[in-house]
Simulated assay, not measured.
Amino acid sequence: MRFLHERPIVPVGAVPQKNAKNKRKAINKYTANGRELIHKNLAINTDAMLWLMRNPVKGRSIEYADNRISLFAAQYGKCAVTGLPMEVHDLHCHHKVPSSKGGTDAYENLILVSKAVHVITHATSEITIREYLNPLQLDDSKLAKLNKLRTMAEMPVIIL
């Protein structure tokens, strides 16, 4: 007697079983209460997520709009440099490699930052940089992240 793919048949009793533990039955997609709990556990501002879905940036590609939403979820609505939560009107989707230098709207080339960080990333004026940088009070690791973005945008690094 030959088996398909030469695999033996195993009796069901020999298969180890384990029960799922610590899963709340209330959290499910089939009830309004369950769906509410799912969204509550996402740890992101779902109202802001809906706003981003309904208000794509005019003149940008669908890929850009989709990736902006994905980044918002991946970054939990926080600025990639400061780590602070952002309001939707303060949120800027930055191209790591600028479009003018061949950068695309691909997920890997985009990052969400606050307006202040975005202005500093592209600023050439020392006055503008200081004006936006001082209120942020960036530590060394956050300044390094900002300088990495400036380097990729072919801007000089900021030295405090």
Rank of each mutant, 00 (worst) to 15 (best):
M1V: 09
M1I: 09
F3W: 06
F3H: 11
L4F: 06
H5T: 12
E6G: 03
E6Y: 05
R7K: 11
P8R: 10
V10G: 09
V12A: 14
V12W: 09
V15P: 13
K18T: 09
N19A: 09
K21T: 14
N22P: 00
K23P: 00
K23V: 15
R24M: 13
I27M: 13
K29L: 13
T31S: 15
N33T: 15
N33L: 15
N33H: 14
N33Y: 13
G34Y: 12
G34S: 08
R35F: 04
R35V: 13
H39G: 06
N41T: 10
N41W: 12
N41I: 03
N41K: 14
N45F: 03
T46F: 12
D47T: 07
D47Q: 10
A48M: 06
L50D: 15
M53A: 01
M53K: 10
R54V: 01
R54N: 15
R54P: 00
R54A: 12
P56R: 05
V57A: 11
V57N: 00
R60D: 03
S61P: 04
I62V: 12
Y64P: 05
Y64W: 08
Y64K: 02
A65S: 15
A65G: 03
N67F: 12
R68D: 08
I69T: 08
S70W: 06
A73I: 13
A74C: 04
Y76N: 14
K78E: 08
V81Q: 04
T82P: 07
P85I: 13
P85L: 11
V88G: 03
H89T: 11
L91G: 06
H94G: 06
H94F: 12
H95Q: 07
H95Y: 10
K96S: 02
P98C: 11
S100P: 00
S100M: 11
K101E: 15
K101L: 15
T104R: 09
T104F: 05
A106V: 02
E108S: 14
L110M: 07
L112K: 02
K115R: 10
K115V: 03
A116H: 07
A116F: 01
H118E: 08
H118F: 10
H118T: 09
H118G: 09
V119W: 01
V119F: 01
V119Y: 01
T121A: 15
H122V: 05
A123V: 00
T128W: 02
I129P: 04
R130H: 06
E131M: 08
Y132F: 14
Y132W: 10
Y132A: 00
L133T: 03
L133E: 11
N134Y: 04
P135S: 02
L136Q: 07
D139E: 13
D139V: 01
D139A: 04
D140T: 06
D140M: 05
L143R: 10
L146W: 04
R150M: 11
R150D: 10
E154I: 00
E154Q: 07
E154G: 01
M155D: 00
M155A: 08
P156C: 01
P156Y: 02
I158V: 05
I159F: 00
